[in-house]
Amino acid sequence: MTRPPRGPGAAPVPSGFSYPDVGATRTRPLPAGYHHLHHETLIGHGRDVFENAGTAVTTWAMHRKSGARVRAGSVRAEPGTAVEIALGAGPLRMAAPCEVVWTAYEADRTGFAYGTLAGHPESGEESFVVERRADGSVWFTVTAFSRPARWYTRAAGPLVPVLQRAYARHLGRTLRKIAAR
């Protein structure tokens, strides 16, 4: 079953999460039976860097500037927002339907998590959080749990976690450039 788009440019996405542990990136510990990813990147220091980074994460700018194509049902991450992230081009383009599970819009913590929907190459959840710590440093953290959901991600085996970690590092570098402006 397909849910209609939630806004201009939104992709229709299949309804229903493809995993049972919805919200686990917020509550931790991450569930067993999945590959776990936790990657932190120092973005910079100060309130301006924090605000720029938080805005870039929650308005999809970080994903877009990293080279991903984003179709989202809202201009900013909100629970229930349908999102499609696509990487690659032509026949090598891989689309990943997701839905925002939770958001954080706090004084020193901003971010969100999305969960996979039917049709996503993986099954699980990924969060993107910017945090300003007591010393003024601003950190970007990607936390995820996932397992293969399609034949090609199962066939790729141990290569998938390596690619996920490389993409998390790429997002961190992209966000550092955005936040420095």
Results as ranks from 00 to 15, higher is better:
L42S: 08
H36T: 05
V75K: 11
A10C: 07
R64L: 06
S66G: 08
A77K: 11
Y34W: 05
L37R: 04
L92H: 10
P29G: 03
A24N: 01
M94C: 15
R76I: 09
G7S: 13
S15R: 11
A32M: 13
T41F: 05
Y19K: 00
S74P: 02
R26Y: 15
G73K: 12
T27Q: 06
V83M: 13
N52L: 15
G90C: 10
H63C: 08
T55A: 10
L37M: 08
A61E: 08
S18H: 07
R6Q: 11
P20E: 06
V70T: 03
P97F: 08
R93Q: 11
E40K: 12
S66F: 15
G23R: 02
M94D: 01
P14G: 05
G90Q: 09
A68S: 12
A86R: 11
P29V: 01
C98H: 10
G16S: 03
A95E: 10
P31Y: 01
T25L: 12
R64C: 00
A32K: 03
P20Q: 03
G73T: 07
N52Q: 14
L92G: 05
S18I: 04
A95T: 15
A77N: 14
V13S: 11
P12S: 11
G9C: 12
R47P: 02
H35I: 00
